[in-house]
Nucleic acid binder design. Structure first.
Lengths: 231, 231
DNA sequence: AGCCGATTTTTTGCATTCATTTTTTGAGAA
DNA sequence: TTCTCAAAAAATGAATGCAAAAAATCGGCT
């Protein structure tokens, strides 16, 4: 089993999406991260006892956390048969990417309504940084900047509900997204850069509807890359 | 205490809307419906014991259900202070309507890609039915048709993930939406009808991007009506 | 009388326990 | 050997029990 112990003290208070006055359910965050990071094999059965030992808690709070993660769609909870890491079918992937596309499209539209010049400048800066990574063919740095830009747009939308929803879906496809980006994304690197130019351009002009279209299409193209990867 | 009693015998085994291969967590559905229907006052404290008696279960499964509903954003869970029905601030309302707008915009875009003539015909039929209610100033029937049309568009998108997300958010604003529609919507009834004409037109032409804009704006206008209502 | 603080009561959070259900293991027969 | 079926072992779903925290109650003080 690939489960590795976690630092007892290193519990992440975590920049939770919307931590509220959150209680000891840092456990949910810890478990979510644990799964998202890929510490559990896809479709693998997850005995409660095992996780209890890992996290040093009893079954009651663990089960509560599992229910929450199941509601988020991260795991499946089969009656009397335990929890397993949800496997993403090709269909699931298609759906998730499209929903992400819809959320980003929304974020772009809203961002255009209220983004400040300073925020745009910040995004531009990250964009240029990303461009330098692109020129040097440094995939990892490029990817980081890419993520950062998308996150900044979502934040610029000024809608905490959207941010939380976005974060939730982002978590669900993070693993796949990672590998997909690292692999096939390479082939359309130039194309992706051009798309990002267009995104920035539309953002500067505060062309919400246009930006909305571009972002959705951008995610569509990402989806195609990911799908090609799976196949 | 503002919690009002429920019928003692009226325990809902509940035909769960979308239970999946779900287990006895019809409880979550039951509780969610119970809250969405407005049986608990806004911001009211919800003692666990009380709900246990109401639903005839012990605290363990109830707490699991509460955690799930908290994750959905329907209730707040304060550490050591129990659960309370989440109060929707004006800000929350703004956010929720915009997210709904984004989801509908996405649904429209996706629907244009794959909707069949038969499905369009069905929507048209409901639209005409709605128009008749409009002419007769029958608010309730109009409202039902309205909901049905939006639901059909979401379904036509052919994205179960989107449908589930949409349903979740719809639940969160259902109460407010209801009152808002019944009250202020009246003033912009004609406007809403015209918007629906435009929606149908764009759908017929499979103009995804355009439909996306119209639907978002449509929800924006609904939002304004709701906000005016609150103020 | 009104206000503040301590004690009692209730409630929450979690661990433990119990009853079912499932899964595994093992024996016997084809 | 392999298949089938039964018994044992383990895991799940839910109830109960216990310690800690909050709320409520009561007594003392200004």
């Amino acid at each position: 089993m690939e489960i590795q112990p976690i630092e007892p003290g290193a519990t992440p208070a975590a920049a939770a999406p919307r931590p509220a006055i959150s209680l000891h359910d840092g456990l949910v965050t810890a478990l979510r991260d644990y799964i998202v990071e890929g510490n559990l094999a896809d479709g693998a059965r997850i005995p409660e006892r095992l996780l209890c030992d890992r996290f040093g808690i009893s079954r009651t709070p663990l089960r509560e956390a599992l229910k929450v993660l199941a509601a988020e769609g991260l795991i499946d909870l089969l009656p009397n048969r335990g929890a397993r890491v949800r496997e993403l079918s090709a269909e699931d992937l298609r759906e998730l990417f499209d929903v992400m596309g819809g959320l980003e499209a929304l974020a772009g539209r809203l961002a255009c309504e209220r983004i400040s010049d300073a925020e745009i400048a910040e995004i531009e800066q990250t964009h240029h940084e990303m461009y330098r990574f692109y020129l040097r063919r440094e995939m990892h740095g490029y990817f980081q900047c890419n993520q950062a830009i998308h996150r900044m747009i979502v934040e610029a939308a000024g809608n905490a509900t959207l941010s939380a929803t976005y974060a939730s879906f982002a978590g669900r496809i993070r693993r796949v997204r990672y590998s997909a980006n690292l692999a096939k994304e390479r082939d359309r690197w130039g194309e992706a850069m051009r798309e990002h130019e267009a995104i920035l351009d539309a953002l500067r002009r505060r062309a919400g509807s246009e930006l909305s279209d571009i972002l959705f299409q951008h995610l569509r193209n990402k989806r195609k890359a990911a799908q090609a990867e799976v196949a």
